[in-house]
Design a protein around this nucleic acid. Structure first.
Lengths: 146, 146
DNA sequence: CCTTGACCTTCCCATGATTGGAAGGCCTAT
DNA sequence: ATAGGCCTTCCAATCATGGGAAGGTCAAGG
């Protein structure tokens, strides 16, 4: 299977397959006499693994760790779980940050008439030194506050 | 006021002030005879505006629009409000995507023993073609789910 | 007056993941 | 044999930010 077919079968673009190979995330593919990369179904499976992990928001660096565990048949599932939960933590932190932004923006937008007049508390907040930074309140799971 | 003081007063690093000037987000600063950039309190206020908008997650491109409205004394507050609510939309969409990831990861992690044994449904999911993609519900607001 | 240290200037490079394109080689079907 | 669709490598751009080098400037103190 050449790189185009592997791309279609795995959902990873040919460009990215070469990039992953170049950066060492995946091993170098075999080559035909003409220099074309060839892929086995096992390698396509690995590419799908990478794709799926990306879809779950894992950084490529973490995916390298996941792949190492995947290949290690004497791995401890605790290590895998730890990576997954660390990822959850990171996602939740970013979600919280964005929720704070949403809360602030909605608060400001609520006070804005949204008509033809120029007066606008949103701009007033942005320009002033007394900004309304809404903290994220006691909502949520209470996880990972630090 | 030179760039270092302006940076301290606005919360925008000197590096970023030069970058914003170079990319046209902010106008070119005045210069001393020796070539040092100088900043007035008005310009520092503009930098604070930019800083605050970044804190609310606005892309620099949007901030350019916000600054244009800020400067336009015959603006319509509706335009400002529209930008703010569009930003809320964008944030909510990204939050929803990440919440989907969290839900999937937690689902998978929940099924993982997390002990010394190698068996792990997380890896099984990543490698398989039958992935458990938890969808976010029927296109609601994405609220009230976790 | 000269040195020192803290500032400033421009220029280049790196990040992370991804995409785009150019120039050239290969393969297959007509 | 030629067309077109693949493939190869290399180079550049994205977005916002930081790091650092090489060199000029300024203020304080000896």
């Amino acid at each position: 299977m050449n790189i185009g077919e592997a791309a279609k079968a795995s959902g990873v673009s040919a460009k990215m397959i070469r990039y992953y190979e170049q950066t060492g995330l995946i091993p170098e593919a075999g080559r035909t006499a003409a220099g074309y990369r060839t892929y086995t179904t096992t390698e396509v499976q690995m590419l799908r693994f990478v794709r799926r992990a990306r879809d779950l928001g894992f950084a490529v660096e973490r995916i390298a760790e996941l792949l190492a565990l995947w290949r290690d048949r004497s791995r401890h599932s605790a290590d895998v779980k730890h990576l997954a939960l660390a990822q959850v933590e990171g996602l939740r932190r970013r979600i919280r940050e964005m929720e704070d932004m949403v809360a602030t923006l909605e608060h400001l937008a609520h006070g804005c008439n949204g008509d033809h007049r120029p007066d606008c508390p949103i701009l007033a907040d942005l320009e002033g030194e007394t900004s309304v930074v809404l903290p994220h309140g006691p909502t949520g799971t209470g996880f990972g506050r630090h």
